[in-house]
Computed example of a mutant assay.
Amino acid sequence: MAAAAAAVEREADRLTELDSPIGDADHGSNLLRGFRAVLPALDAEHPAAPGEVLQLAGRTLISTVGGASGPLYGTLLRRTGKALGDAAEVSDTELREALDAGVTAVAQLGGAAPGDKTMLDALVPGVAALSTSYRAAAEAAENGALATVPLQARKGRASYLGERSIGHQDPGATSSALLLRALADVAEPGEGAA
Rank of each mutant, 00 (worst) to 15 (best):
A5S: 03
A5E: 01
A7F: 03
V8A: 04
R10C: 05
D13T: 12
T16A: 10
L18D: 08
G23T: 12
D24T: 13
D24Y: 14
D24C: 13
D24N: 13
H27Y: 10
H27L: 12
N30T: 12
N30A: 10
N30Q: 08
L32Y: 02
G34H: 00
F35A: 03
F35T: 11
R36K: 10
R36Y: 09
A37Q: 11
P40T: 07
L42A: 05
E45D: 15
P47Q: 10
P47W: 11
P47V: 11
A48T: 15
A49G: 09
P50G: 06
G51F: 07
G51K: 10
G51V: 12
L54K: 08
Q55V: 15
L56D: 10
L56K: 07
R59L: 13
R59V: 11
R59F: 10
R59A: 12
R59T: 10
T60Y: 01
I62T: 05
T64E: 09
V65H: 14
G66F: 06
A68M: 05
A68S: 13
S69R: 09
P71E: 04
P71S: 03
L72N: 11
R78H: 04
T80C: 03
T80W: 02
G81I: 06
K82D: 15
K82V: 15
A83T: 06
A83H: 03
D86F: 04
V90L: 12
S91M: 06
S91W: 04
D92R: 15
D92P: 06
T93C: 05
T93V: 12
T93E: 15
L95G: 05
L99Q: 08
A101G: 09
G102F: 13
V103G: 01
V103E: 04
V103L: 01
T104W: 14
T104C: 14
T104H: 15
T104L: 14
T104N: 15
A105P: 13
A105Q: 09
A105L: 14
A107I: 05
Q108T: 13
L109C: 08
G111I: 12
A112C: 06
A113H: 14
D116P: 08
K117Y: 09
M119Q: 06
A122H: 02
V124S: 06
V124G: 07
P125D: 06
G126Y: 04
G126R: 05
G126L: 03
G126F: 03
A129E: 08
A129C: 11
T132Y: 01
Y134L: 02
Y134F: 08
R135E: 00
A138D: 02
A140R: 09
E142I: 06
E142G: 08
N143L: 02
A147C: 07
A147R: 07
Q152S: 04
A153Y: 09
A153N: 10
R154V: 05
R154H: 09
R154G: 12
R164A: 10
I166Y: 07
I166S: 04
H168C: 02
G172P: 07
A173N: 00
T174L: 00
S176H: 11
S176G: 12
A177E: 08
L178Y: 02
L179A: 08
L179W: 04
R181A: 08
A182I: 03
L183W: 07
V186D: 00
V186F: 00
A187G: 00
E188Q: 10
E188C: 03
G190L: 02
G192Y: 02
G192M: 07
A193G: 14
